[in-house]
Design a protein around this nucleic acid. Structure first.
Lengths: 247, 247
DNA sequence: ACAAAAGTGTTGTGCGTACACCCATGC
DNA sequence: GCATGGGTGTACGCACAACACTTTTGT
């Protein structure tokens, strides 16, 4: 590596993470109060600056790890924001990632130790800079992605029940689903393994646990086979002008 | 704006454009030979460095204008590439955009004056750095987007015939379509206005010209109405492992 | 025994797909 | 008059959506 580009401007590059979790039947975001100037004390996404020696993906993983202590998180790059004045401190390019995590007591405590909180998606407060815009984009991307890739499982524990899974889909898409149709379609995909065990907290009868069969899924995708889950047909074809689906 | 972030690293930020055109029944890319070191003389996407005083979108537009002389181009951010060693010169983050342009003789000459060439999508040579990866992603994004948004028209002249439009869809998706089904579905969307004029170059009977009614489309999207065009059902649901659709 | 959530099948319909022939014109 | 590409309609099948009752068990 030489010294070729010294005529050009250099920029701060930030990484901001939109962290989704599912808890108490609600889709939530992990938010925190910013700890440094400018805008210290205001609500913000988890973020940080890209180091010289790390890739974008590595940087995003590092930042997520700082806050949650977790590794091996499902995470994808979302979009890059670069308006000149988007950051009131200095001109900064922000590369955003969204992450899906399984909310867990341990992580919860670690997050709280950092001053982070899980906030229900429809109670997200005013965030700094363009972070609300980022959240909206992440949400619409999540909605359009969840019907095409089996990523819902990233938000649930290893073992989950079908009513839980249905709640998740309902929370993400903000709509009620028919129980019979949901079960039929999600099971006929053939990627859920039924366990013998039942979850007995939320009902007397108890609901059977299921596991997502990741190996089978990877096998399928390698062969170019399909995953497809529709919530409602309309969701596939509606294009709203206010929000770009990013697809 | 103050001086808040001086502890952090700064980075070169490049903008690389994947420029699609449609000509002679083929989907093409505008490529050029790199004019500076490193990798001078090798095939490359059109790119440049982000200036201090411009947004990402503005930078991408500036770069595209340099090469084509065009303004008001359909253009969307694609993805941001940031591996540490992706650029053999110096560490550079690349924010990519794809653009759809109406190939035209004038522009063609301007592009050629810059040493740029239109290359058929399936004859794209080895490009520098990770540019081939960018092209692949742009192509799969284009494919998945064209069935959801009426962007095909950005690649055609104002006036076009239905056979031309069908050719375009076929070129993008690399498959044959049924003429009757294509016409039925594309017309029932209700966004094409038939003109009285005929195109007589490519057939003796001549094919009627149509125009895309952009005003009507914007009206529809404002109301949250729908656009949806399926090429083949399978294209909506196939998930290939090798390429991420980015949706 | 009753409340509360889990679990289970069928039917109608609308959409997507497959398919073949006539039309207009230039040569 | 014939070759070339443009233009048109229908029938079938499948996948999605709508819908109501039984089961289990803790209290």
């Amino acid at each position: 590596m030489g010294n070729y580009y010294s005529n050009y401007d250099k920029h701060y590059v930030a990484l901001d993470c939109i962290i989704f979790g599912f808890e108490g039947g609600e889709l939530k975001l992990l938010l925190l109060k910013r700890k440094f100037e400018p805008a210290k004390g205001e609500w913000s996404l988890m973020g940080g600056f890209l180091d010289k020696s790390e890739s974008l993906d590595d940087g995003a993983r590092r930042i997520l790890h700082q806050l949650t202590g977790l590794n091996d998180i499902y995470m994808e790059q979302l979009f890059t924001y670069g308006d000149v004045n988007r950051d009131s401190g200095e001109r900064t390019i922000s590369v955003t990632y969204y992450a899906l995590i399984k909310v867990d007591e341990n992580d919860r405590k670690l997050a709280e130790a950092h001053g982070a909180q899980w906030v229900a998606i429809n109670k997200v407060p005013k965030l700094i800079f363009d972070h609300n815009k980022m959240v909206n984009k992440a949400l619409s991307t999540l909605r359009s992605k969840i019907v095409r890739k089996p990523i819902g499982f990233e938000l649930l524990p290893e073992k989950f029940t079908l009513p839980q899974l249905q709640n998740l889909y309902e929370a993400i898409n903000q709509e009620q689903l028919d129980k019979r149709n949901f079960r039929k379609r999600i099971l006929e995909i053939g990627l859920l393994d039924k366990l013998d065990e039942k979850e007995k907290e939320s009902s007397k009868k108890g609901a059977f646990y299921y596991k997502f069969n990741k190996e089978k899924y990877l096998l399928y995708t390698e062969k170019g086979l399909l995953f497809h889950f529709k919530v409602k047909k309309d969701n596939l074809i509606k294009v709203s002008s206010t929000e770009d689906l990013g697809i």
